[in-house]
């Protein structure tokens, strides 16, 4: 029986992020989602549970508004959730998130294997996995695209620029997963109903004793501007000809 923890983040859906006329980031009409690769992290935990026998705890740190994420996460198959929340946990930098996760997971959750996403969709820092592993004093393997467990050992195939590294380590350990490790299931009505019956452990700032001061301070944020001419052509032969003429004129083809 393998105790698995998967960490997920509730993030602003970047597809809704707009720029204001003055170049600021406009978050007026954004929607939220479970960070893309964290769906793979949860799915992988559930696949391992189904394959080897186990128990899955999903954990998130965020502001109280992130409560919407809990049922969504649980409908994907975990047995329970830990919701670590405080109004001051809305915009944490990676070292803070990792420290909070380490304190809660280390003190309260049984784990053999911790699975994080490769990176969060909003910050994409790709830090929390390795930082959390270090804080817990366990080994980590990042960028895993294939995961197996044998005799209490993890065998992970992970991606690096030059190709693949196959790495093994005894549990407990942490991995971060790439999106091609699996295809997350789409929860059905039954899963959603089952999710509402699963236990949720709420943890507030008052339950934590660590010092979570930020080490990175944000001095400025702004929209990344994209200034393009946005000329559209149709698809008939004469339109395509016009398109080629435009490229010639712009000196984009010679």
């Amino acid at each position: 029986m393998i105790n698995i923890v998967s960490c997920f983040k509730w993030v602003i859906d970047e597809a809704y992020v707009r720029a204001t006329s003055s170049g600021q980031i406009d978050l007026e009409s954004v929607d939220y989602k479970i960070s893309d690769y964290d769906r793979n992290a949860i799915e992988e935990a559930v696949i391992i549970k189904e394959k080897y026998g186990g128990d899955v705890t999903a954990v998130t740190v965020g502001s109280p508004e992130a409560s919407k994420s809990i049922k969504n996460a649980l409908s994907r198959g975990p047995d329970r959730a830990y919701f670590i929340n405080d109004t001051s946990f809305a915009d944490l930098e990676p070292s803070q998130t990792a420290a909070i996760l380490a304190d809660v997971i280390g003190a309260q959750i049984k784990y053999d294997l911790i699975i994080c996403g490769e990176g969060s969709s909003d910050l994409y820092a790709r830090q929390i996995g390795p930082r959390l592993a270090h804080k817990l004093g366990i080994p980590c393997i990042c960028f895993v695209q294939k995961l197996e467990i044998k005799d209490n050992q993890i065998i992970a195939e992970r991606r690096v620029e030059a190709g693949i590294e196959i790495i093994t380590v005894p549990m407990p350990a942490l991995v971060t997963v790439l999106s091609d490790i699996n295809s997350p299931r789409v929860p059905g009505l039954k899963d959603t109903l089952a999710a509402s019956k699963k236990p949720v452990v709420n943890i507030g700032k008052q339950d934590l004793s660590g010092n979570y001061d930020p080490k990175l301070e944000t001095r400025e944020t702004r929209a990344a501007s994209l200034k393009r001419s946005c000329v559209k052509f149709g698809s008939e032969a004469q339109d395509v000809s016009g398109f080629v003429q435009a490229l010639l004129k712009a000196g984009a083809i010679r």
Binding site: P130, H134, C140, C142, F143, E161, P214, K215
Partner: peptide
């Protein structure tokens, strides 16, 4: 690099310092 990012995160955690990625 991918391995560089992983290494940097572990070192940053060991030194209890901040790390700005990419």
């Amino acid at each position: 690099t991918l391995r560089g990012k992983e290494l940097a995160a572990i070192i940053a955690s060991s030194l209890d310092t901040g790390l700005a990625s990419d």
